[in-house]
Amino acid sequence: MSRIKVKVKEKDLNTIKEICKSFNNEQGELINVLHKTQEHFGYLPAEIQEVVAQELEMSVAKVYGVVTFYSFFTMKPKGKFPISICTGTACYVRGAENVLAEFKRQLNIEVGETTEDGKFSLSCLRCVGACGLAPVVLVGEKTYGRVSPEGVKDILAEYNDK
């Protein structure tokens, strides 16, 4: 049993420990802990979940159960420029699906994946509350409104040299 040993950098271990401690190592704070941890590391790989489980004195199976329940948490690193396409209803009726398809085609990745150079990742989200601008695309913190499939190329071009 436990044939697998988990390796964590000391610095990272201490960071996670500090985060857990800031929530009094309480199991009930798991989701807050995961938020903070993901904020710091960008994602929640297995070894990080192992440390969180150890610090909160709970089973790592339960931590994994929570991480995989909520779509906000990810076990894969996001790209340098995470692209999110709103697929809320308003965006849908105004053609968000075609915009998404175009991003997939241009980047050659599926939703939830990151381009090989680590530059872009693609995700869908539900309604950012900008329905007036539908269809809406977010690249990092920047919002693009009334995006058409033809406009995808131009959006990506903005990040060419970055």
Partner: peptide
């Protein structure tokens, strides 16, 4: 604590972490 429900919806099942 070896087992927990993981994922959600149609993909959900019960198993060990990861």
């Amino acid at each position: 604590g070896a087992l927990s429900a993981f994922k959600r919806g149609f993909e959900a099942a019960v198993g060990p972490a990861f």
